[in-house]
């Protein structure tokens, strides 16, 4: 038999070799069972995580007022959303908050990231630690402290400017935006810093060598090259802002109802299919944004 024939022979019956040698040692038997258990574990994890969401999505198309039983497919809850002024207004509030908070926190977060990565200044390490606090501090703590802060600050401003009661500053959309900026800066800064860390500083030197001053170097070289990181950070901030309930709940006021707050107030009455529909839409939006953010960061690599 020639070499070629031997190769063809083995190619024609590859499965035989596999089935001829079943696991023989106790170790491999254990491994097989371990692998099966891991599979079970994975399946359960996914079920626990996604089954409720799946139910919510399915029931948003349920042709029944009551959530418990499937009565047929309908788009009517989505249609009703469009005519519900409270929901529409809450939706626009959410967009306003998310867009403003994203814009402001992206600029501030990027500047912070550059400062932390490129400059040496006193208490840099301390500031570095503090910067990451909003990421780990529980939302409820953040919410309460912001509530206390706004109460104090607004009271102080109102007194200082001697504003009458009917035109005094109150919590509302603005305070929500400020609160969202406060926690988003950290997330943006973290994402932008990673892209700055991989940045080849010789590129900036090359630009300066060719006659570009610091500002032109930043605008023409640094900024375009870290842009995927900045956009990734911005998308993350937008998603976090859009979804946020706890911090918004503590810092909002009259006229400052965002979509999550509106949903929560509706849920206290009853779980209506409209809520399922809004939630499905929000879920969709979040998924799209997170995917966009991840693909931007991947492109950077």
């Amino acid at each position: 038999m020639t070499v070629q024939q031997a190769q063809e022979g083995s190619l024609s019956r590859p499965a035989v070799t596999d089935t001829h040698y079943p696991p023989q040692r106790a170790g491999s038997l254990l491994l097989t069972w371990g692998k099966r258990l891991l599979w079970v574990n994975m399946v359960f994890s996914f079920v626990f995580l996604y089954a409720p969401i799946l139910v919510l999505v399915i029931f948003s198309f349920n042709n029944s007022r009551f959530a418990a039983k499937w009565e047929g497919f309908t788009f009517q809850w989505y249609g009703q959303l469009l005519t519900n002024e409270a929901i529409i207004s809450a939706f626009w509030n959410s967009i306003i908050v998310a867009v403003s908070a994203t814009l402001i926190s992206t600029v501030l977060g990027t500047m912070t990231a550059i400062a932390m990565e490129r400059f040496r200044f006193p208490f840099r390490k301390t500031y570095d630690g503090i910067l990451y606090l909003p990421v780990i501090v529980p939302d409820i703590v953040m919410g309460i402290s912001l509530l206390a802060f706004f109460a104090l600050a607004l009271d102080w401003i109102n007194t200082a400017l001697a504003l009458p009661v009917d035109s005094a500053l109150r919590p509302g959309l603005t305070t929500v935006i400020i609160a969202h900026v406060a926690f988003n800066i950290s997330f943006v800064a973290i994402v932008v810093r990673t892209s700055l860390r991989d940045f080849n500083k010789a590129l900036e030197e090359a630009a300066q060598d060719l006659g570009a001053n610091e500002w032109i170097t930043f605008r023409r070289i640094t900024l375009p090259l870290i842009m995927p990181g900045i956009l990734g950070g911005a998308l993350l901030a937008f998603t976090l802002s859009l979804d946020d309930f706890v911090i918004t709940f503590f810092t909002t006021g009259p006229g400052g109802t965002t979509l999550p707050i509106d949903v929560f107030s509706r849920i206290r009455r009853s779980i209506s299919p409209e809520i399922n529909a809004i939630s499905t839409l929000m879920l969709l939006m979040s998924i799209v944004l997170v995917m966009a953010s991840q693909s931007l960061q991947r492109r950077r690599d």
Partner: peptide
């Protein structure tokens, strides 16, 4: 003087070409 005010140019070790 900063580099951008000197009529001197450099060829860098790893070229440092602007990738974008």
């Amino acid at each position: 003087l900063p580099p951008f005010k000197r009529n001197v140019n450099t060829v860098f070790q790893n070229y440092a070409l602007f990738p974008h």
